[in-house]
Amino acid sequence: MPSFDIVSELDIQEIDNAVNQARKEVDGRYDFKGSKSEIGWDKDKKEITLNAEDDYKIEQMGSILQTKLHRRGVDIKAVKFDKVEPAGGKMLRQKVTLQQGIDREVAKEIIKVIKDSKLKVQPQIADDKLKVSGKSIDDLQECIALVRGGSFAVPLQFNNMRS
């Protein structure tokens, strides 16, 4: 029985490259000269930290980071900016979390869209991805087109197509 997976994955290497490019731009910009602004990147937690002295610099660093991520092909839906919080020593901090995997609510929403379409496919939740199986590859391709056309809270990719 043909099947495929719906996943939400990020290319960590591209994120690493984007963070390094953003750091270089912040270091070279005139309005950041002499400031203690920095961009931290924790690969294990998949979290980026923006540290700066004022709201303007935090906002500019966030904008630079978003631009670099977008240019490297990282979907901005996967990037979640938390509130700016005081970090001590007249500094401000903003955490940027990277969302990977499909959580239960989004998975249920995708399943509802698929079932409402009356396509002859069976979606099921498997950990942080969805497995969709059907009798014909044409039905699966229609399902992919349907899900691509929808707007969901996370970026979606389709892989492991088996016939």
Rank of each mutant, 00 (worst) to 15 (best):
Q60R: 13
W41D: 10
I76V: 11
D138C: 03
I114T: 06
I39H: 04
R93P: 02
S133K: 07
Q66M: 12
V19A: 10
N20S: 10
L140V: 00
V147E: 08
V147A: 01
I15Y: 10
S8K: 05
G88S: 01
S117N: 08
L119E: 10
E109N: 13
Y56V: 15
E85H: 07
K45C: 11
D55N: 14
C143T: 11
K118G: 02
D138M: 09
I12L: 13
D116T: 04
I102W: 01
C143P: 07
V121G: 05
R29S: 11
Q157G: 13
V106E: 05
E109R: 04
S133W: 00
S136K: 10
Q157V: 06
L69W: 05
R71K: 15
T67E: 14
R162G: 08
F4M: 00
H70P: 05
D27K: 15
D44M: 06
A78N: 02
K33T: 14
I125T: 06
K36E: 10
L65I: 05
K129T: 06
T97R: 11
H70R: 07
D5Y: 02
L65Y: 14
A22I: 04
D75I: 02
I15W: 14
S63Q: 09
S8N: 03
K68V: 02
E25S: 00
V147Y: 09
S151L: 08
R104H: 15
E109F: 04
L156V: 03
F32G: 03
K95I: 06
V154S: 03
S136G: 03
Q100R: 11
M91E: 04
G40W: 10
K90I: 06
E109D: 08
I111Y: 04
R29I: 09
S163W: 12
D42H: 08
A107Q: 14
Y56I: 12
K108T: 12
Y30N: 03
N17W: 10
K77L: 04
L10R: 06
K118S: 13
G134K: 02
S8G: 01
D31H: 09
A52W: 09
S117Y: 08
D5Q: 08
I39M: 02
R71C: 00
T97N: 11
V7M: 00
I48K: 06
Q141F: 13
R148E: 14
S151H: 11
L156S: 13
R72S: 12
